[in-house]
């Protein structure tokens, strides 16, 4: 670990200010559950670490006229306990599925959304794109956990966030602050992630000196149902092999609108319009859910060693749909 300055601002604008120095070679510390490991491995080597945990305005969940503002410092435990978040079942299910007391008590939503990829080439020091001599190590290396969709570019890692699929399926937005003192932007979460095209590009639209402060969620209508299905090899402290979150608007048993988002299958959370269109104006049944799953992976381009993830992603979509309408039986 490289030595760094440590700052603990009390307000958002202070935080933004502190992030500007050292040419933006600064890092945001939330729960620290991932950042500390990254620092120790020298994968992130900032000149200054800005601990945002003291910032009151970035904590808690507040209602406004047409939705909720969720502070990014909301911990996984708080997601499970919050009465306001309770109707967003697909989110609560993700927090619960971590099955790790330490992570749930200190990990935050913001940290999850900005979590750097778990790609083992990246974590072993080969860079986000894992390029060596102009060649992608992932392409011919061990890509069992890598992308099966959106992998034709140089990025082949999978997005690490576990909450993003559920949040995107709910139509969430993120509030980005900085780099100018009072600069604020609210962006649909769907457009927050990028698949980097070059080594110096990150995997989000965040520029040096920016951070996210809040997540906005639209209000839940009585006809809205949601669910997340994550395929986890181990019962806890594991990353999904693939996951799917769905938010459905169901009236009289018929799906009026659907959002289907897959996780851990592509360099960004993967919005499946194909799956959504299969569901629209139909009654949910096992066959329909199956068809949605098949549609979601119809354009999959598995790498040399991850064909199996196609089947897993398809199952995740099918089961998320069935789970949302209370029709899921079984599953390990």
């Amino acid at each position: 670990m490289k030595n760094f300055e440590f700052a603990s601002p009390q307000t958002e604008s202070e935080a933004v200010g502190l992030l500007q120095d050292h040419g933006g070679r600064t890092a945001v510390l939330a729960g620290g559950t991932d950042l500390v490991g990254l620092l120790q491995a020298d994968l992130v080597a900032p000149e200054r670490v800005v601990d945002v945990r003291q910032i009151q305005s970035m904590q808690g969940v507040r209602r406004d006229a047409d939705g909720l503002w969720v502070g990014v410092l909301t911990t996984l435990d708080e997601v499970m306990a919050s009465p306001l978040l309770k109707p967003y079942l697909s989110l609560v299910q993700v927090a619960d599925a971590h099955h790790a007391i330490q992570i749930q008590s200190s990990g935050t939503l913001g940290g999850d959304l900005c979590h750097l990829p778990n790609c083992w080439y990246y974590r072993n020091g080969y860079g986000l794109l894992a390029m060596q001599d102009g060649e992608s190590l992932v392409q011919t290396g061990d890509n069992r956990y890598h992308a099966i969709l959106g992998n034709s570019g140089p990025a082949k890692f999978v997005n690490a966030s576990r909450f993003a699929p559920a949040l995107i399926a709910w139509g969430a937005k993120v509030r980005i602050i900085g780099p100018a003192p009072d600069q604020v932007e609210v962006v649909p979460l769907e457009y927050f992630y990028v698949s980097p095209k070059s080594a110096n590009q990150g995997n989000t639209i965040l520029k040096p000196g920016q951070l996210i402060s809040h997540i906005w969620l639209p209000a839940v209508e009585p006809t809205h149902v949601s669910a997340t299905y994550e395929v986890l090899q181990l019962e806890g402290l594991d990353w999904p092999l693939a996951s799917a979150s769905v938010t459905l608007d169901v009236e009289g048993g018929v799906v009026r609108a659907a959002r289907v988002v897959l996780g851990h299958v592509a360099p960004t959370p993967w919005v499946s319009l194909e799956a959504a269109s299969i569901l629209r104006n139909q009654m949910v049944s096992e066959d329909l859910a199956n068809a949605a799953g098949a549609a979601a992976v119809s354009k999959a381009t598995p790498l040399s060693n991850n064909e199996y993830k196609v089947q897993i992603a398809k199952t995740a979509v099918k089961r998320a749909v069935l789970k949302a309408v209370g029709q899921l039986e079984g599953g390990l």
């Binding site: 099955h99 778990n118 290396g141 061990d142 090899q233």
Partner: peptide, 29 residues
Amino acid sequence: LSEERVMDKKTGRYINADLQNYKLPRIGD
């Protein structure tokens, strides 16, 4: 069920030599 050394053919490295990707079960498993 889960534990194994993964040798990456490309780099020749023990690519999962950490406690995250070297998958050990927990009591719930």
